[in-house]
Simulated scan of single mutants.
Amino acid sequence: MARRTVTSEELSELVYRAALQDVNWTMESIALRAGIATPAVEEALDHLETAGLVRPSRNSPGGYDAVDPNIALMRLFSLEDQQLARHQEEVSRTRRAISIIMRDFLGVSSARRRTVELETLATAEGVIAFLDDAAAVARGRVWSMYGGAALSADAVDAMLLRDSAMAASGVALRLLFPRSHAKDQMFSGYLEELAGAGAEVRLAAHLPASMVVVDDDLALLSVDPEDEWAPALAVHGRDLVPTLQALYDHCWLTAERWDGHAAVQEPAAVGGETPLSPEERAIVQFLVEGMKDDAIARRLGVSTRTLSRMIASLLERLGVQTRFQAALELSRRGWLAVSGPALASV
Rank of each mutant, 00 (worst) to 15 (best):
T5M: 12
V6A: 08
S12I: 09
A19T: 09
Q21F: 13
D22I: 05
D22F: 08
M27R: 15
M27V: 14
I36S: 00
P39N: 07
L48I: 00
E49D: 04
E49N: 07
A51G: 05
L53F: 08
V54I: 06
P56D: 06
S57K: 00
Y64M: 06
D68P: 15
D68K: 14
E80K: 11
Q83C: 06
L84Y: 06
L84E: 01
Q88Y: 03
E89D: 07
R95N: 07
R95V: 15
I98D: 11
R103Q: 09
R103C: 02
L118V: 04
L118C: 07
F130I: 02
F130N: 03
L131F: 09
A134I: 00
A135T: 05
V137H: 09
R139V: 09
R139Y: 04
G147R: 01
G147H: 02
A149M: 05
A150T: 15
L151Y: 08
A153T: 10
L160C: 12
R162Y: 00
R162N: 02
A167Y: 01
A172D: 14
L175S: 03
L176S: 04
A195E: 14
A197W: 06
G198R: 13
G198P: 03
A199C: 07
E200S: 07
A205V: 11
A205Q: 06
L207C: 09
V212P: 00
V214Q: 03
V214C: 04
D215I: 14
D216I: 04
A232T: 05
L233P: 05
H236L: 06
R238F: 02
R257K: 13
A262V: 15
E266D: 15
G272E: 03
T274V: 13
L276Q: 05
E280D: 05
I283S: 09
G290V: 10
M291E: 15
D294Q: 10
S303L: 01
L307K: 02
P341F: 03
P341H: 02
